[in-house]
Nucleic acid binder design. Sequence first.
DNA 1: TCTGTTTGCCAACGCTTGTTGGCATAACGG
DNA 2: CCGTTATGCCAACAAGCGTTGGCAAACAGA
Lengths: 186, 186
Amino acid sequence: MSGERPRRSDGTRAAILRAARERFAADGYERATIRAIAADAAIDPSMVMRYYGNKERLFAAAAEFDLRLPDLSAVPDEEVATVLIRHFLDRWEGDETLMALLRAGVTNPAAADRMREIFATQLVPLAERLAPGEPLTRAGLVASQVLGLALSRYVLKLPPITAMTRAEVVAWTAPAVRHYLRGRPD
Amino acid sequence: MSGERPRRSDGTRAAILRAARERFAADGYERATIRAIAADAAIDPSMVMRYYGNKERLFAAAAEFDLRLPDLSAVPDEEVATVLIRHFLDRWEGDETLMALLRAGVTNPAAADRMREIFATQLVPLAERLAPGEPLTRAGLVASQVLGLALSRYVLKLPPITAMTRAEVVAWTAPAVRHYLRGRPD
DNA sequence: TCTGTTTGCCAACGCTTGTTGGCATAACGG
DNA sequence: CCGTTATGCCAACAAGCGTTGGCAAACAGA
């Protein structure tokens, strides 16, 4: 019932999805053209339409994403923020889907929706287990710091941020994230 | 030598610039069309070309921006972060140029350039006066937090962040910014 | 082997985009 | 007053976009 038998075109479908993620990540929603994606996947643009219907649905398929947040129940309190930031950096650098979501989410409502959904369904529950009250607010603040870091480092490439090593980034931002997770406002 | 005598078309020029800022802020660089901007300014699209040459130069003119960072030399150390965040919120809500720069900067290299330039020439000097060493790094970190906040609150509209009042935002983020300005990494 | 389906390409459509050149009219300078 | 310049609109262009329909070839099941 749930199992779809493999088709001969699965390779092409996967190539399209891979190329789409690349282009959306590099160029954003409007500048990533179906024609360019098709060229990257070495097939005809009309195939993209046949397999994914239209550009919007192609993006939806390419923007499927799991943060894969680790289980932090065994991690000592003082290290939670450090582990979390390291994990986010890994996800940003190891999977271009997040970049596609960020670049597209700034101008495309559906992409922004997906972004909200991801943080609401995946980060908030983690904050619920970790934080002493107000998990929504805390999760939102952590998200804002992580997103700001990604924006500065990977998209805008602010020189002071790109100049930092991974370890420096973690060391500097960990206290801020720790404050959002367990601290109190002024 | 520096004084350009006023032209009869100055009103039109200003209307174009105002409409351009609005559209770039709302839609980003590629979705903000010359035609839409011209319609908002109630003139013909060809006038935009005559007065600004092309779309890229129009954006450059519309994205002229001054952070107007206040003199913080008289502000007590503990309040510097609070004052700074409040000022950024003011600038973000009172002038759509910053939104135009953010929305455009994610996909347009020239806009990203301008963004880097603004933070480098305006925020770094302030960090040099305030911070005990490493002003570049500290300015970059403050920028990342402020940009992340703006992205979450004004662009992506993450529900937990938009639900916060201005005062709550300031109270929660001030300790993080204070850490970036005067604290030490882990 | 014959038949129907899947995979792929080609050519084209309707539309929107940035951009251009020409033509009218209004304002200005002498 | 006339000639020049500035201002504005109209019509059109070439290019690129998402999208569609049809046709050839390869495959699958009988």
